[in-house]
Design a protein around this nucleic acid. Sequence first.
DNA 1: CTGAAAGCGCTTACAG
DNA 2: CTGAAAGCGCTTACAG
Lengths: 342, 342
Amino acid sequence: MTIKTPGSPGTSQRVTSHDVSREAGVSQSAVSRAFTPGARISPEMRQRVFDAAQKLGYKPNAIARSLSTQRSGIVALIVGELHNPFYPQALSQFAQALEARGKRALLLTHDARQDIQETLDAASSYQIEAAIVFPTRLNSTAPSLGDVSQGGVPVLLFNRHLPGRELLSVACDNHSGGRLAAQVLLNSGARRLAFIGGDPDTSTHQDRLNGFVERLAESGLGPLATPSLSFRYDWGVQATLDLHAAGHLPDAVFGANDIIAIGVLDALRSLGRRVPEEVSVIGFDDIQESARLAYRLTTIRQPLEAMIEDALAALGDPQPGFGPRLHPGELIWRDTVRAATA
Amino acid sequence: MTIKTPGSPGTSQRVTSHDVSREAGVSQSAVSRAFTPGARISPEMRQRVFDAAQKLGYKPNAIARSLSTQRSGIVALIVGELHNPFYPQALSQFAQALEARGKRALLLTHDARQDIQETLDAASSYQIEAAIVFPTRLNSTAPSLGDVSQGGVPVLLFNRHLPGRELLSVACDNHSGGRLAAQVLLNSGARRLAFIGGDPDTSTHQDRLNGFVERLAESGLGPLATPSLSFRYDWGVQATLDLHAAGHLPDAVFGANDIIAIGVLDALRSLGRRVPEEVSVIGFDDIQESARLAYRLTTIRQPLEAMIEDALAALGDPQPGFGPRLHPGELIWRDTVRAATA
DNA sequence: CTGAAAGCGCTTACAG
DNA sequence: CTGAAAGCGCTTACAG
């Protein structure tokens, strides 16, 4: 791909601070100062520069500024597959939050075939100030990520944590969330509870499962089944169909995330099972889709805004500490869990 | 946000080509050449440089390179709201396609309150080579976009076109797609056809509607109703409910996109109407969700890959021409349109 | 093929 | 407050 120059080709010469300084009859330093927020410059000078800049259509070159200041203002956002709508939502909110802070988001993709380290290296050549990874493709078996922060740029895992690695991470308090899901289902009178899990190698999955099982145990129960595979709609459907075929249909299911829970709902419907009369279903995330008329899914919401703020705060903190930063989930009560029995 | 330096603070000094040249005992130009693909340099020299670079952990600074070469390798991706899953999909595929070409994607958001021109200006300070806008928030009343390409960077509208402006755009052939939808519905025996539209100010909406109406007219029919508002699920639901309340329930509906059509499906279901027995429904886009068990939506697929390739090709072309570049939609036959009557 | 040097467009001590 | 100058880390004619 090469650059083309539509419109007047002559105009395409980039106008620089030198051009402006000439036009305004001041030094080049002056024009630089005029465009630097806290700089020592008289209002008259600044105005004079602005007028000339306006006239010439001057815009400071952020690349040159980055080189000079040694701060790019760029944060890398690294995403894998986007099957789960939770991620696009997080992605765009991150981009906005970054912009609000005067930063820019460099979007990088990461697929299963490549080591995430390569992606990070590629990003770091742009002198990124931090990298936020949305680990749709990353589980605890991921290699070498532990070394990343050595390069000097902080890496933050969003919505997952890797135990024992020196990485920043922010996530929902999935363990408590798992407990909450169990609690809600138990309250509704359910006794045959199943968990349909996502990728078993992820902390997200594990924490939700452990919290769920822990709470069940406190009521003297164990899960009926905990089939787990991946955080995808198809899997939610499949697992439900399998359970049914095996004659193990539960009276309540906790889907490891909403997209799975929605699969469960669709499968149940195709099986002619009524929700919540025969089977209660609860999910996790509260993606937009869960509120739809066709689902009205009861779920545990991840406090996305708070998590994003916190992620950015952690990245800005010189001594953040490496444990996962946890945020409590919030129960969103809709129509897929039976009302509590009296 | 400031940079922190985890790990060994001493290590955080960026290693530059000078460090490498010193280590390798060669000139700085040599190390630059070693990292420049087509450069004239002997294999021995290159290897020597690579060894030193490896030892020091050197990575070329892309920011400095950009400044020097006057080519940033950065393409801006500008997105608005992401209610429609079509866009995240397009977004991540664009990012991948760009990476495959050695380019980087700068992600910018654009909300309704701000002029898109501001967003483009912000982007252009990073010396972007092109901007691709996903016009979820942009309709034909958008101001000033016509001036954008003056700045020297080509702007491409994805999935929409603005008549009469000198902008690149690639889109599906929505007019033919609208005709195709009408055709399919007519073949199924429908006679009372409605179109539930999106934002009436968009070319996407208009072209689909016009094609649809045109084909209907050829069969001596007119649309039963064409309520239009926005490309959102909620609107699909609402419009269907309204039609029903007004006693105008059609025997076939063409949803201006899949997300609307899915809303229609959900509303129909809540009304106790059977699809496709009582009402046929067809959508547009073929988002992943449309294939789900609960919907199995018959729809017209936008050839996303081809559109993305073409977009990148157009951006690389010095003389692209400004008409919209149209790609034919493909009928995806699933379960929401009645089989053709004999 | 290799090196010394100028230059990309800024920022920022340093003097005044 | 203002200007001249050095420097950020590369690339690329220009000589050799």
